[in-house]
């Protein structure tokens, strides 16, 4: 950790501690992990911007079906490339200490593929297809049935899409979401 410590001033660490759900030690640990993705580049510039492909080598992200969405949501340049600060934001939201509401907010953006601030039918289809993985395919009618069921459950105002309020309503009642939407640092 000696290497990592020299890269941050006390002030920066204090900032990070105040602005994320991490303690200083954890921030440094996160930086180590980030550095492991591209040792040279990050060693040179601690806040280097790594391309999305590089960030996706992080073990949990590598196998995650929503990996590109996660990167895009947290990337400050909106193209999926992440600086350390973006990475720290990501880990902070996905950490154990982040409250449900914060998690729900980001999850909504991750699931909102087309970015229209609604999770519509096409978004739901995409989510389901990604959940089942590249090898297994549900039949079209099954997906349709499932989308129908989801909308029946959650779409309170019958507009054929989930708004954030509706999404938050679901998440509030789901005790498993907090367990599953989490990456241990």
């Amino acid at each position: 950790m000696g290497q990592g410590q020299s890269q941050f001033t006390e002030e920066e660490l204090q900032d990070y501690e105040d602005l994320t759900y991490f303690t200083k030690k954890e921030v440094l640990y996160a930086h180590q992990k980030f550095k492991a993705l591209a040792p040279e580049k990050v060693g040179h510039n601690k806040n280097a911007k790594l391309p999305m492909a590089k960030v996706l080598q992080y073990p949990e992200l590598r196998v995650n079906p929503f990996r590109d969405r996660i990167c895009k949501v947290f990337s400050s340049s909106n193209d999926g490339d992440c600086t350390f600060e973006d990475f720290l934001d990501m880990m902070s939201v996905l950490s154990e200490n982040a409250p449900k509401a914060v998690k729900a907010e980001h999850a909504f953006r991750i699931f909102d593929f087309d970015g229209d601030d609604m999770i519509g039918v096409s978004d739901l289809r995409e989510v389901i297809e990604r959940l089942c993985g590249p090898e297994l395919k549900l039949s079209d009618s099954e997906i349709q049935q499932l989308v129908q069921n989801v909308l029946e459950e959650a779409d309170l105002d019958d507009d054929g899409a989930l708004s954030f309020a509706e999404f938050e309503h679901i998440i509030d009642k789901s005790s498993d979401f907090c367990h599953s939407f989490r990456i241990r640092l």
């Binding site: 073990p59 949990e60 590598r62 196998v63 995650n64 079906p65 929503f66 996905l94 999850a107 699931f111 739901l124 989510v127 389901i128 959940l131 499932l146 069921n149 989801v150 029946e152 459950e153 959650a154 999404f167 679901i170 998440i171 009642k173 789901s174 498993d176 979401f177 367990h179 599953s180 939407f181 989490r182 990456i183 241990r184």
Partner: peptide, 19 residues
């Protein structure tokens, strides 16, 4: 009635890191 929603939105364990 949130069975399906839980399945779709909370289905994936983000902590899985093994192929």
């Amino acid at each position: 009635f949130y069975k399906y929603c839980n399945l779709v939105f909370g289905g994936w364990d983000f902590c899985i890191h093994n192929d």
